[in-house]
Design a protein around this nucleic acid. Structure first.
Lengths: 283, 283
DNA sequence: TCAAAAGTGTTCTTAGTACACCCATGT
DNA sequence: ACATGGGTGTACTAAGAACACTTTTGA
């Protein structure tokens, strides 16, 4: 229960704060984990392409962690919400309208930026690779898409991000107590990744795996029309498991509708193209 | 994709920011929705008490929204994380160690505080009412426990908080699009509640209902030893539904262990006292 | 014809729903 | 004795797992 003296103290605190900048304030940023779903190339004329999940990172050309990779993001301005800031940054980085942008965490360790006090808000963006305007690699400090792998092994989590020869590793430990409702990662070891971005990416992957089971965000990683197998591959790639075809079709049947079209031109039976069905009860 | 000129612009932005306070920074707060589970009094010697979910609010004695009720909370300091700040505030308000404290949202509308730019982080705290050191009502500006009711009706959500004669109402609209992974409330009408705290409370209740189904936080609303019926009442009160006894017992059987003791002294068969079982797989 | 993928049907198992019933207690 | 809650069994139903099978295509 609050006591009189606490209230008085708070009053003073408020007044000092009101005539501003006596109390230190943090910079606030939005950092975005942009997930894109790509098709791998296949040589065999019969075989279909596989789906690959990638994350967009930018190489830093300055400041602390120079040369390391970091998530796209930037400062929140005083006339916008944090989501607005994330949307703005996303536009500046990728030049596309994104279907999905949602916050999943807040990162506020006062030492996470060695220079000053920065609180970061972690956002996840989802997009089908086809819709990305990628004029890649004209500059060493450019943005690159990294393949993602995130697995548990011997009570530790290994995060691997790779783009050709460039490989980023991070070992993470889950320090959540048995009462916690979500995992809390701590970085044990990492290379070439700036700030605590390995933790933000790990949280994003865990949240993506959770959301894909609870909601219909899988469609945000696909073009408007898709085959049932493509939809299943989204789930298999994100969750890193194999699913049984008949069970998957039954479960998803009510979420999609037939477009009437089929995907032709491969050395096997053509697949019906579906689209996401309207009017499905949310969540 | 990022262009050279963007990078240069960002450089300038960084330098300005580094020699500080050229760019405006927000104040950052942690606001806490403290849920407590109380026992209602029963007159009949046979009847058992019901569980009641309450939220702790503090009447403002100053500034904007004077006289309105607000969530306990305060500014984050530059030597602590936001969770630390929430823990500190929780200690100052309730003087108890709390079993559960977790962030569920961020509120960053630049106009949510009429005076200045304040970004708030919403936390949820859970406690068994028995463990609360409540020396109530010595001051009109004191903290009070409000009964909670939150229901959907005709495409709107009604939040009602009541403490004796004091009644707070709020009508909320869910403005989430069909792509969204969570509801997003907007305030249509409200009385006697400060800032956007009706939205923070609504989000907290929705998150509590979600977490109670996904995790084992129900135990955080109970004392160490409890009867199966008490556990079931936690679920029924939070979810605002009735559950079937045999089904509930089967589902929960592996989460609890028998203490050997029984709860006596009522006009009916005594109930076995259980405790939360160790070594249950998380989530 | 055949490899690859599309697509369906059937059985078995598990988890949840609904309800009927008996047990123990204090007044 | 009886009202009240504690506690168990059993039949029914819906959803998921596992697997076997047929269909269609281009080279």
């Amino acid at each position: 229960m609050k006591k009189r003296v606490d209230t008085i103290k708070e009053n003073e605190e408020f007044v000092k704060n009101y005539d501003d900048s006596k109390y230190k304030k943090p910079s606030v940023t939005a950092d975005i984990v942009i997930f894109g779903m790509f098709d791998s190339e296949e040589n065999n004329y019969r075989k279909l392409s596989q789906k690959e999940l990638k994350v967009l990172l930018i190489q830093r050309d300055q400041g602390p962690f120079e040369g390391c990779y970091a998530l796209p993001g930037g400062f929140v301005r005083s006339n916008e919400t944090i989501v607005d800031a994330a949307k703005r940054e996303l536009g500046e980085e990728t030049h596309v309208q994104c279907d999905f942008l949602e916050q999943f965490g807040t990162y506020s360790d006062p030492k996470r930026d060695p220079r000053r006090w920065v609180i970061s808000n972690g956002f996840m963006a989802l997009m089908d690779a086809g819709s990305i305007n990628l004029q890649a690699g004209d500059d060493a400090s450019d943005a690159k898409w990294f393949d993602v792998s995130f697995e548990e092994a011997e009570n530790e989590w290994k995060l691997q991000l790779s783009h050709g020869e460039e490989k980023i590793f991070a070992r993470l430990k889950n320090i959540a107590s048995r009462w916690d409702v979500k995992q809390k990662f701590e970085s044990v070891e990492s290379n070439d990744i700036a700030f605590d971005h390995q933790i933000i990416i790990a949280d994003a992957i865990m949240q993506l795996r959770k959301w894909i089971n609870e909601t219909h965000i899988a469609f945000r990683l696909l073009p408007e029309k898709f085959t049932f197998r493509e939809l299943q591959q989204i789930y298999e790639t994100v969750l890193d498991t194999e699913l049984l075809v008949p069970a998957f079709r039954r479960k998803m049947a009510f979420l999609v509708e037939d477009t009437g079209e089929v995907s032709g031109d491969a050395g096997h039976r053509p697949a019906v193209l579906y689209r996401e069905r309207d009017g499905v009860d949310e969540i």
